[in-house]
Simulated scan of single mutants.
Amino acid sequence: MNNRLQDIQGFLKTILRGSIQPGDIALDLTAGRGRDTLFLAQLVGAEGRVHAFDVQEVALQETQRLLKEQQMAERVHLYHWDHGRLLEKVQDPVQAAMFNLGYLPGHSQEITTQAASTLAALEAVLQLLRQGGVIALTVYRGHPGGLEEAAAVEEFLSCLPRRKYSVLRGEYINQLPNAPYWILVQKNKGDTE
């Protein structure tokens, strides 16, 4: 398992590896430093596409640099855009989406994801998500506004129809109270509602 229990991102990537096939379309709704964007680009292959969003130009620059280094830039569309306005850029069915809620590590903690925009992005992703598709969220809540955003996301996701979606939450029980945690959402196969 290679320390996957110590690494939320690694754990979520293990889950997503089983959900994404070459040719799929995936979303990175918080491009950050580009690691998740690169991971998704590797999974979708040359025939697939990744749409990666961030409101910070520096995040997109770091993502672009990493993608070029790894020769994956042609598989990714980068958007300097609020993820809450996702549907203005993407209308295709998607197989997977990743969110890292919080702020860009090593940069200003005053620029963070916000509950209203994140909820709008989740609503949009749910409209685009294919049956069997997965949304993976890492929720960081140790910054100003983090607890409020986490509560809003959980309230929204807990109200999804249980026959149509499976929603799981996982967290460390031996860490600090505001430690990061993960949420997975899958659009159930075979549901006709």
Rank of each mutant, 00 (worst) to 15 (best):
Q42P: 00
G23M: 10
T14C: 08
K189P: 02
Y103A: 06
T112N: 10
L43R: 12
G170M: 12
Y181K: 02
Q109K: 12
A151S: 13
R75M: 06
R169S: 12
K189V: 12
L184C: 11
H77M: 09
G34R: 00
L137E: 08
A26G: 13
V55M: 13
S108M: 09
L66W: 00
M1R: 02
N100Q: 05
K89A: 13
Q64C: 07
E57I: 03
G142Q: 04
L87Y: 02
E110F: 05
F156L: 15
F156R: 11
Q114V: 03
R4F: 13
Q6S: 09
T118S: 13
V125N: 07
T14N: 08
L86S: 13
F53Q: 04
G23F: 08
R49Q: 11
D24L: 04
E69D: 13
E69Y: 02
R141C: 07
P22G: 11
Q186Y: 02
P180S: 08
Q91Y: 04
L137M: 10
D92G: 01
P177S: 13
L126S: 10
L122Q: 04
S19N: 13
L137V: 14
K187I: 15
L40I: 07
A151I: 09
L157E: 14
L176W: 08
V125E: 04
T112F: 06
E193A: 06
Y181L: 08
E155Y: 12
L60H: 04
L67V: 13
A59Q: 09
L119R: 04
Y181C: 04
L101E: 05
L129A: 00
P93S: 04
G102T: 00
T138D: 00
Q91N: 14
A41W: 02
V153W: 04
G102S: 08
N2P: 07
L67W: 01
Q56F: 09
L40Q: 03
V55C: 10
Q70K: 05
Y140S: 11
L16K: 10
I20P: 06
E69T: 10
P161C: 06
A31D: 06
P161F: 00
R49G: 03
R163V: 10
G102K: 07
T37D: 06
E88H: 10
T37K: 01
P161A: 03
Y140C: 13
R4E: 15
V185I: 15
E69W: 00
G142R: 03
Y165P: 11
H83M: 11
D191Y: 06
E123N: 15
L67C: 07
R65S: 11
V76R: 01
A151F: 14
W81S: 14
L60Y: 00
L86C: 12
S166P: 00
V185T: 14
E69F: 03
G132R: 07
M1T: 14
I183G: 04
R75Q: 09
V153D: 06
T118H: 03
G32A: 10
E149L: 04
A179G: 08
K189M: 11
E110S: 12
W182D: 08
D28A: 07
A59T: 01
Q6Y: 09
N188E: 15
I183N: 02
V153G: 06
Y79W: 15
R35T: 15
G170C: 11
R169I: 15
R4A: 14
P180L: 07
H51G: 02
E123Q: 15
L38I: 11
I135Y: 02
Q71S: 14
Q175S: 14
R169G: 11
H107Y: 11
Q21Y: 09
A120C: 10
